[in-house]
Structure formats: structure tokens, C-alpha cells
């Protein structure tokens, strides 16, 4: 990658990507999905072309990274543009898998496996359960219509540009990983020594979350409680009740 040309291209490509997402987002009235897909593919292709043109593929690792990155980005776009929550969840599994691949490329085997097990195995399954529990029949309006798509895409583009483009690293080569005997063992040691307190706190947090989740879901509200609250017009509560 040429350093001089990097920021402009980055901005241009992120803008193109944001435009693609803007077109792809579900809309009730009209659909620009094909145009959006086309723009997205062009943007991705351009990005890959630029990367390969600038850096070239010398290693299998590089190839793998590009493949994982492309997959992750495409799948994450798919997650947010799907109208059906189930497909979103499934595409999210793909994002996790490719993220795990990228993490693997960074010599973090334990984390990659943990990511797949915890995310794809546990969290996503919970999501699927909730989707089945709380899904209405057919496509509801709120699934088919996105909210403020332009503003969201603008905000996303700005953040992407700010996070990615601003980094003009002087020395961007990675330090070669020191051959620590058994990454997993090393991580375990670090976590159990340096981060002992944090680990305990994390455990407490998990416990609290479990208890909290159970408590929240068990709590039952009377049916008419909500209705009465909703029927009162704006400011009605303050008018009827004494101010102090």
C-alpha cells in the first residue's frame, strides 16, 4: 500500500461502501437493492484491487487475511440489511467465523476458538431462541422499514473514516511474535496473575447478569397497567397528580 495515496482512497472507498449500505438497507416503498449490491461489489473489488496492486500477495497468510476480511465485511453488511432476524443471526455466525479466522492469523488460537465457542455456540443460540420466542408472524413493518438510513450511513461513514483513515502509521510492520511456549498457557498465566481481580470481577458480573436476567423475565406486569399509561396524553400525569 502506498502511504501517500492511502487516506484519499480509504475515504473514497468507505464512502462508496456507505452508499452501498444506504441503498441496501430495507425500505418499505422502493428498493435499490440491486444498485446497492453493485456499488458494494465495485467498492470491494476496487479495494481488493488496490490492496493487491499496492502490496501484492506474497504469502498464503495474506491471501487468507484478504479472504477473511472480505467475508467478514460482506457478511456484516448482510447482517444489517436482512429483513428477517433469523438470517441476520445466521450471517452473524459467518462474521464470527471470519473474525475468528483473522484472530487466528494473529497467532491467537485460544481466542479464536473461544470466539467461535462463546459467540457462535452460546450467544447466537440465545439470540435464535429469543428470535423464535418474540417473532411475529410474517414480516412486520419495523423489519421492512429502516429508520433514518441516510443519517445512520453518514454517521457510520464518518466514524469509519475517522477510525481508519486517520491512522497513517510510520511503522506498520508487526513485531514478530515471540515464541511463547503454548499461547493458551501464556494467556492463562496472564489472566490468572496480572488480571486476577478482573477475572474475579468478570465472574461476579456473569453471575449478576444471570440473576438479573432471570429476575427481569420473571417479573409480570398487570395487563392494564401499560394500557392506562399509554392512554394518558402528554402531560396528563402531571396535571392529574399533585406536583409535590
Amino acid at each position: 500500500m502506498n502511504e501517500s495515496c492511502l487516506p484519499i482512497w480509504t475515504y473514497l472507498l468507505t464512502a462508496l461502501g456507505a452508499l452501498a449500505i444506504f441503498c441496501l438497507l430495507p425500505r418499505a416503498d422502493k428498493s435499490y437493492r440491486s444498485a446497492g449490491g453493485l456499488i458494494g461489489i465495485i467498492a470491494l473489488g476496487l479495494a481488493l484491487f488496490l490492496l493487491i496492486h499496492n502490496g501484492g500477495i506474497e504469502h498464503g497468510t495474506t491471501l487468507c487475511f484478504y479472504a477473511f476480511a472480505t467475508l467478514a465485511i460482506v457478511c456484516s453488511v448482510a447482517v444489517i440489511v436482512q429483513t428477517r432476524a433469523v438470517y441476520s443471526a445466521l450471517f452473524f455466525v459467518m462474521v464470527i467465523l471470519s473474525t475468528a479466522g483473522m484472530v487466528l492469523l494473529l497467532d491467537a488460537e485460544f481466542l479464536a476458538v473461544a470466539l467461535v465457542i462463546v459467540y457462535a455456540g452460546a450467544i447466537l443460540v440465545t439470540y435464535l431462541f429469543v428470535i423464535m420466542l418474540a417473532q411475529q408472524e410474517g414480516l412486520s413493518l419495523y423489519d421492512r422499514k429502516s429508520r433514518a438510513p441516510f443519517g445512520a450511513c453518514l454517521a457510520g461513514f464518518l466514524l469509519m473514516a475517522a477510525l481508519s483513515g486517520a491512522w497513517t502509521p510510520m511503522d506498520h510492520s508487526m513485531v514478530p511474535s515471540t515464541p511463547i511456549a503454548g499461547e493458551t498457557l501464556a494467556i492463562g498465566r496472564v489472566v490468572m496473575t496480572n488480571y486476577m481481580v478482573v477475572l474475579q470481577l468478570a465472574g461476579v458480573l456473569l453471575l449478576l447478569a444471570m440473576v438479573g436476567a432471570v429476575a427481569i423475565v420473571r417479573k409480570r406486569f398487570p395487563k392494564d397497567f401499560d394500557a392506562s399509561r399509554e392512554s394518558a396524553s402528554i402531560g396528563e400525569v402531571g396535571r392529574k397528580a399533585a406536583p409535590f
Binding site: 465485511i73 447482517v79 436482512q82 450511513c153
Partner: peptide, 21 residues
């Protein structure tokens, strides 16, 4: 890649209306 993933997440967070998504 991280920034792009984060940005896409932001876009989805801001534009989708389904709480699960």
C-alpha cells in the same frame, strides 16, 4: 477491517428498528 466492522455495526444500530437486530 475493525473500523469497517464497527462502522457497519453503527449503521445497523442506528437504522434498524427490530430490537433483536
Amino acid at each position: 477491517v475493525g473500523a469497517v466492522l464497527f462502522g457497519i455495526g453503527v449503521i445497523g444500530f442506528l437504522s434498524r428498528r427490530n430490537l433483536i437486530i
